[in-house]
């Protein structure tokens, strides 16, 4: 890759080079978006299926501006392959950026971030290919693209139109970098487990497999064979009931203000993850599946409505 885009020049240290270090990639992206003015958040402390579930995403709703970036560990129980598939995992990282309102130069900013991690746009073929995003469980959708680098999808780029069933105005622009895949490309390895995690050599080198292979194997066993179905069904019901209860209790003053949107939303996230676990175990039939998705969506919608009646959601402003 060309010298002009050499990120190591600014990073100084080889082990931080996003082209040889997984953590270097994350830190470079954080630095880039921090320099732009984003709040750099830490991952949310609950199991979620994608970065979009981070409660920070609720800020896509309401009139207040919001610029944030964060890494979010994401769990997709069904995608587990016992660590044997070179590029499928039940636990992986997403790097999420949300800018609201979406700035007019969002595409350029995204391309600059690619330059920052070592992708020279005069050497590589970057393409914006139609891909509309929809999360039925969140009642959310947006239009945008999947971003291709030499034929490989490296990011999702979405203009949020609706979240929790509510129209987004102003519109938030959301970027999602699939970190493992991007890192495989930058480090030129075929298998995620072979990624250099810490950018060191020889005995000091820690690979992605060193960190996560055992977890992939154990969780695949859990997700497909052993997860406690009875407990999960009960948990789903409990989370659903708790969410409704907190929503109910949080309303104040003829539904003008809500005081517990976030705790209620936690339960919605919980229900969603429990549903994913049940789905991975294959205990939900095709018809039931729709009804579970519908139930989670109803929770998400009610939480979105509550959020709009909070300070963060712009109530009273």
């Amino acid at each position: 890759m060309s010298a002009a885009a050499d990120p190591s020049a600014s990073q100084q240290q080889a082990h931080m080079d996003p082209r040889r270090s997984f953590q270097g990639l994350i830190l470079t992206l954080q630095r880039f978006w921090a320099d732009y003015g984003c709040v750099i958040l830490q991952p949310y402390d609950m199991e979620v299926g994608a970065g979009t579930f981070h409660p920070a995403t609720l800020r896509a709703l309401g009139p207040k501006p919001w610029n944030a970036a964060f890494v979010q560990p994401s769990r997709r129980p069904k995608d587990g392959r016992y660590g044997e598939n070179p590029n499928r995992l039940q636990h992986y990282y997403q790097f999420q950026v949300m800018l609201k309102p979406s700035p007019p130069d969002l595409q350029d900013l995204y391309l600059q971030s690619l330059q920052a991690i070592g992708i020279d746009t005069r050497l590589h073929d970057i393409r914006f290919v139609e891909d509309d995003w929809e999360s039925p469980t969140l009642g959310a959708w947006g239009l945008g693209w999947e971003c291709w680098c030499d034929g490989m999808e490296v990011s999702q780029f979405t203009y949020f139109q609706q979240f929790a069933g509510i129209e987004c105005a102003p519109v938030a622009g959301e970027l999602t970098y699939g970190l493992e895949r991007l890192a495989c490309y930058l480090q030129n390895v075929e298998c995620i487990m072979d990624l250099n995690f810490n950018g060191r050599d020889g005995a000091d080198k820690v690979t992605y497999g060193d960190v996560f292979l055992q977890a992939e194997q154990e969780y695949s066993r859990h997700n497909f064979e052993h997860s406690d179905v009875e407990m999960l069904f009960a948990q789903f019901k409990m989370a659903e009931a708790a969410c409704q209860k907190y929503l109910e209790a949080g309303w104040e003053g003829e539904k003008k203000r809500h005081l517990m949107a976030l705790p209620a939303y936690d339960q919605c996230i919980k229900a969603s993850h429990v549903f994913n676990l049940l789905d991975a175990r294959g205990v939900i039939s095709v018809t039931e599946r729709q009804s579970y998705i519908f139930r989670v969506r109803e929770l998400a919608k009610a939480c979105g409505e509550a959020w709009l009646a909070t300070e963060g959601g712009g109530a009273g402003t």
Partner: peptide, 14 residues
């Protein structure tokens, strides 16, 4: 079609 930024105009992309 979609909206973007703070505007109300809709187009296929910004």
């Amino acid at each position: 079609q979609m909206r973007w930024g703070s505007g109300r105009l809709t187009w296929v992309r910004p």
